[in-house]
Design a binder for these strands. Structure first.
Length: 258
DNA sequence: ATCTATTCCTGGCTGC
DNA sequence: TGCAGCCAGGAATAGA
């Protein structure tokens, strides 16, 4: 499932391939992709920039911005082979950009400025300072895992990296009222794990691949996610799995005390 | 206002 | 072997 590191990997591969290219045609095959909103007219317009905003991929044009969210199984493929799950296809000068999405959780949104659901997101965890992160966290109540998954708190974290960051920071996923000191430790671990994951091309858990169909390798470095019943890499205790806010949650009961 | 549960979607897995 | 039934989960939405 594409989270911040996976989306960053995609953007880094996509940007040099389509920036400055002109759209010759754009087709949206599945109505769900735009969630009923009118499809933008992209033909004749040039891609000005490709950036990441949380888990969204922003394609900026001279007349607006297309925000792409990959959901669970969305893929952006350059010149790939069409599949039964092709939801949109952009023909550009020099290449084709295919949006493939088995489960159709992915979506696109168009705005002359910035789509509202994108504009309202919180700060990027790689940009916010440890002090600001800790201060923001002080204002939130509720379980730490739920707070971190809230894209209005920080944008880009998903189930995998929240579990992994909490383990590295030694914080129980159900913990509440994190102290300022521990919040700064958590911030450091979040930044570190995101940067490591980006360096590994992301985690390929289900069917994540980048624009060239390449898998990431960070799943091999996971310490808790998907490791229920296996020994903690730090202390050997069996990794436990519970459900928090409808999300499978993995943690070490010894390393991560309440 | 804030928090929680539900909904969408389908390949893959489990168990009979 | 076949197949019904369940599971994964991001975020919009409905409900409490």
């Amino acid at each position: 499932m594409p989270e911040l590191p996976e989306v960053e990997t995609i953007v880094r591969a996509l940007a040099p391939r389509i920036t400055g290219r002109r759209v010759l045609s754009a087709e949206f095959f599945a109505p769900r992709v735009m969630r009923g909103a009118p499809e933008p007219d992209l033909a004749g317009h040039t891609v000005q920039s490709v950036t990441r905003h949380g888990k969204h991929i922003l394609l900026k044009f001279d007349h607006g911005t297309l925000a792409i969210h990959l959901g669970m199984t969305g893929k952006l493929l350059i010149d790939g082979d069409p599949t039964p799950y092709l939801r949109a296809e952009f023909v550009l000068t020099g290449c084709r950009l295919l949006f493939d999405d088995i489960r159709q959780f992915g979506r696109m949104a168009w705005s002359q400025t910035l789509p509202e659901n994108v504009a309202r997101l919180g700060p990027d965890p790689l940009e916010i300072s440890a002090q600001d992160f800790a201060a923001r966290l002080q204002e939130k109540r509720g379980r730490i895992k739920t707070v971190l998954l809230n894209q209005a708190f920080v944008r880009g974290l998903g189930n995998i990296y929240v579990d992994e960051a909490l383990h590295r920071a030694g914080i129980h996923p159900l913990a509440e009222g994190i102290t300022k000191k521990r919040a700064q430790i958590l911030h450091r671990e979040i930044v570190e794990i995101l940067e490591q994951a980006i360096a590994s091309g992301g985690s390929s858990i289900s069917d994540y691949v980048d624009t060239e169909g390449r898998k990431g390798s960070f799943q091999d470095s996971h310490r808790v996610y998907g490791r229920e019943g296996e020994p903690c890499r730090a202390c050997g205790t069996e990794i436990q799995r519970i459900v928090v806010t409808q999300r499978g949650t993995h943690f070490c009961p010894k390393c991560q005390r309440m």
